[in-house]
């Protein structure tokens, strides 16, 4: 009965890495602005769909993907500038509702621009599976894991070794003091939306050869990413990535051993249970403050 386990693990980790990246995008924006960005899933969709579109326009695959990710980063930045900043000072819930509006706009726009068809991006390096440890590993799975690790490493470097990264952390823990040392909180918010766009689009592009993409994939992927970041403890970027992996593996095992029809339900059942038992998330910790 457990013969399929290695296979489920591999596909779970692959899917989970993408969830983790999406969750990471949520966390970036939440930390700097206190907003849950429900258009995060649409960034993922744009990464996949724009890549497909640019590839169709005759660009080589790597260039198409890079451009798609940069374009989505720009869209993220524009979203902050045009939709979020004008209501600066309003309660966070207003901004959250605006992000829902933006997600509907982006989804509708994508439907008009790209149509309702489902598209697949070609795998980056062939589809001949690699047999290892009783599982057939798609080369694309390795791409997903490698790109996820590379992005995590880059973010770690950004937060620990650059002044802008530290300034972003400063914004997330103490906005008033951040502006008093000369950090533009508005610019950091813009930067966090752009980075989230970049991360989300990357997840969308690397996942597209495996799960395919269409104008409406953002909704479910966004929810799974949100689940991942709650699972990892909202506000903890690397927790979100780990939460994504846990979620992906749970989902894959649930679908494999119990019933594939409930695949999507597992994620949310686990999320609800966790919220009852440990609301701060698997990797969340209570804050320490001394006065």
């Amino acid at each position: 009965m457990f013969a399929g386990a290695p296979q489920y693990l591999v596909s779970g980790l692959t899917q989970g890495a993408a969830y983790g990246l999406i969750g990471l995008g949520f966390t970036m924006i939440f930390n700097t602005t206190g907003i849950i960005n429900f258009a995060q899933g649409e960034f993922v969709m744009l990464g996949g769909m724009l890549s497909v579109c640019l590839l169709g326009a005759g660009l080589p695959l790597p260039l198409a993907i890079v451009l798609a990710c940069l374009a989505t980063a720009a869209i993220g930045g524009l979203m902050e500038r045009l939709a979020i900043r004008p209501i600066a000072g309003a309660p966070a819930v207003n901004a959250v509702i605006i992000t829902i509006g933006v997600s509907i706009l982006l989804r509708g726009g994508a439907m008009l621009a790209f149509g309702k068809d489902t598209h697949a991006l070609p795998a980056f390096s062939g589809t001949a599976p690699i047999l290892a440890l009783g599982a057939a590993i798609q080369p694309q799975s390795l791409w997903v894991l490698a790109v996820t690790l590379a992005l995590l490493a880059a973010l770690k470097l950004f937060f620990t070794a650059t002044i802008q990264g530290k300034a972003m952390l400063a914004c997330s823990c103490q906005k008033k003091a951040a502006s008093l040392v000369g950090i533009s909180v508005a610019r950091m918010a813009l930067l966090s939306f752009a980075i989230s766009g970049l991360i989300g689009a990357t997840a969308g592009a690397i996942l597209a050869p495996i799960t395919m993409t269409a104008y409406d994939v953002g909704m479910m992927l966004g929810l799974k990413g949100f689940a991942a970041c709650i699972l990892g403890g909202l506000g903890n970027p690397f927790g979100a990535a780990a939460g994504g992996l846990v979620l992906g593996v749970l989902e894959s095992f649930g679908a494999g051993f119990i019933a594939s029809g409930y695949k999507d339900a597992f994620a949310f059942v686990v999320l609800l249970l966790l919220l009852f038992v440990k609301p701060s998330g698997l990797f969340g910790k209570a804050g320490v403050e001394r006065v």
Binding site: I163, K166, A167, L169, A170, C173, Q174, K176, A177, A178, L180, V181, G182, I183, G287, V288, E289, V291
Partner: peptide
């Protein structure tokens, strides 16, 4: 701040999760 006027806020408002050195470094942002 860039004009040369700095404010040490009430209740200090240090960047709690960041190291002491990073707090000072951000002062020189």
């Amino acid at each position: 701040v860039r004009l040369g006027l700095s404010h040490v806020p009430e209740r200090r408002l240090v960047f709690g999760p960041l190291s002491v050195a990073d707090n000072l470094l951000l002062g020189a942002y």
